[in-house]
Write a protein that binds this DNA or RNA. Sequence first.
DNA 1: TGGATATCTTTTTTT
DNA 2: AAGATATCCA
Length: 713
Amino acid sequence: MDAANTFLNELNEKQKEAVLYLKSPLLVLAGAGSGKTRVLTYKIFYLLKNGLSNPENIFAVTFTNKAADEMKERVEKLLGFPVKNMMIGTFHSMCVRIIKRFRWERMKSPDFSIYDVDDSKSVIRNILKEKKIHDLEPKGICRIISSLKNRMIFPEDLDSEDDTFKRIKEVYVLYQETLKRNDAYDFDDLLIETIRIFNENEIFRKKFSERIKYILVDEYQDTNYAQFLILKSIYDGKNHITVVGDDDQSIYGFRGAQIKNILEFEEHFPETKIVKLEQNYRSTRNILNIANRVIKNNLKRKEKVLWSSFDDGENIRIVKCKDERDEAIFVVDKIIEMKNRQGKRLKDFAILYRTNAQSRPFEEILRKNNIRYTLIGNIKFFERKEIKDLLSYLSFTVNRNDEISLKRIINFPKRGIGDVTLKSITLFAKAKDLSVWECLKNFEENFPEKKRVKNGVKEVVDIIENIEKNRDNVYNALEFLVDSIDFENLFDKMLKDEKYSRLENIQELLNSAKEFVLKNEDRSISAYLDMISLYTDIDDYKDDDSLLLMTVHNAKGLEFENVFVTGLEDGLFPHRNSFEEDSNCEEERRLLYVALTRAKKNLFLTYTVERFYYQESSFRIPSRFLKEIGFENRIVDYFDRTKSLSTKKYDFEKKRESDKGKFKINERVVHPIFGEGIIKGKKGSGEDEILIIQFLNGDVKKIFAEYANLTRK
DNA sequence: TGGATATCTTTTTTT
DNA sequence: AAGATATCCA
Ligand SMILES: Nc1ncnc2c1ncn2[C@@H]1O[C@H](COP(=O)(O)OP(=O)(O)OP(=O)(O)O)[C@@H](O)[C@H]1O
């Protein structure tokens, strides 16, 4: 081995093979923690180090922006100098760059708006109102349109005679027209527009694909059809493509990701070589065993070998808790104990859950115990109302066609400009074929009769024009904006806490802009807006030794020494919405596989007996996945804060024949019509004995024990 | 007309 | 419990 390439010692044989292979398309298909990401990182390093490529010839796609930042940092560390001009990021951020470049070449302003789901919903809401459609929900339409776009299905491709479908098509058409008029793209459009540009401008595509000599893609199992097409456009047979992934970790089907991309990779990229990595470097054997035991219940998957050279390690602990509060107390107690006794740091722990709503009790108990934590997801910082309102000023300043942003700011803070005024301005603009902005600027001439709102409009116009002056420095622009709004007064009627927290958020926004201005060469408003529309919580959490709370989805690709997977109950994890379709249930199982394989050393699985779910207390049944883990033979701890920690064996086995006839409270039963349920109570006796049973769908029914033909689960 | 108040619904996962 | 929407009042 050549001296420059001693780094290869940090890879196993298979990994080396994958790093060095450049002859034809390469697929690295391997289980969790087998070093797939490491292969990509070292491959980039190898290409740069050996002069096989310049940074600008590399196109590396990661699943999150954070992963991209970390990969770049790692490569720079290995090289010993910074890397400039490499295309590395998520599909969405790469698309923004491609679209900007194209618009720039065509002398079109590169400053378009990027709409998040909220913005899309309000566009749809306006359309529905205008068209007087009352029986369709913005949220549902949004989801349908997005799922169509993910599959590259356009309005003209819809030719169903079904009435609802026809109306959806109508809304879809209007939605796209509105976005076009506002010069805005939603997340799906970023991908679609890139494909369109490539398809319709062969010279541009060719130039780009000749520039890109190496295409590298991480987490390939979670790419959608549009993303596949983008890769196909860039790959021209002369450049190289490496994709890595694990079909067992595909968890974004709901967003259009298709496992078939990875399963059928060979069919689309000629002479594909496949490398399988089989050694796991992350977890103990006990953890891997449990993960393998769960995932092997999926029927549609590629069987993989995955072994660890580590010891068995600690036992996996399954803990039954009285309710969600106890669950939180148990987890937090455990963390405190491990921190104090074993000197572990907070950042070695992660609490994972299926839904964002589950974070509440954990937060409460953590705050009570003064433990620093970082909550990822849920209400994202930049989506808070007060923040979005401020940002809309910036958006509108750089893109005067963005009517959604205008709508947000025209009456924020309250200036007495309501729906009616806005409507008449919009209509006026349409009639005179002017932009809304033009009408606002000449408001007094255009609407001499509207004396009452005159000053308000002038105020907005002034603010926008002043922001415009600071276009090249987002911090100055924001500082001006914040100064010109009297927040103290605005938040006056709020509760102290709420007011304080909002003011804090605004300060936080200023800090973020300041940081951006200090760190980046391009300090412009538009550069900042692009960054925040594509960056999410997970991309930006500070490395400040705090405990992490997040959904399993957000934990993808990460690893922690100690992991708590919580809320392992039927209906929650797997989520009840997945029960109908087998494929969804398989995705839930993959989600659990991802959760379990995040742990390096200690893994705790918790579930509750009773949980508040939608303002109602409901009795819970342990997750079906726990059975697959084989937990009937395992020690289950029962945690009840009133009784402290006690241990007993949980019996999942079917009861013996002799037990027949007598059902006990909390026993799980199957009803021939209503399905599986749990016995909550009993009334009467003998023939008249009535059982109160809560079924899986949440219904509680009174059933005659004698006649119902119940069987034990 | 806009702002405040009362009523109604809604809860998976996210770039 | 919180958010969005509908209704009412000044
Ligand atoms: N050859 C190796 N020697 C030592 N440690 C390694 C090696 N390869 C990978 N690792 C370590 O194993 C862990 C998992 O690696 P990595 O994140 O690259 O795996 P992955 O396959 O991408 O995981 P996932 O499927 O969960 O995304 C990391 O901590 C990494 O540093």
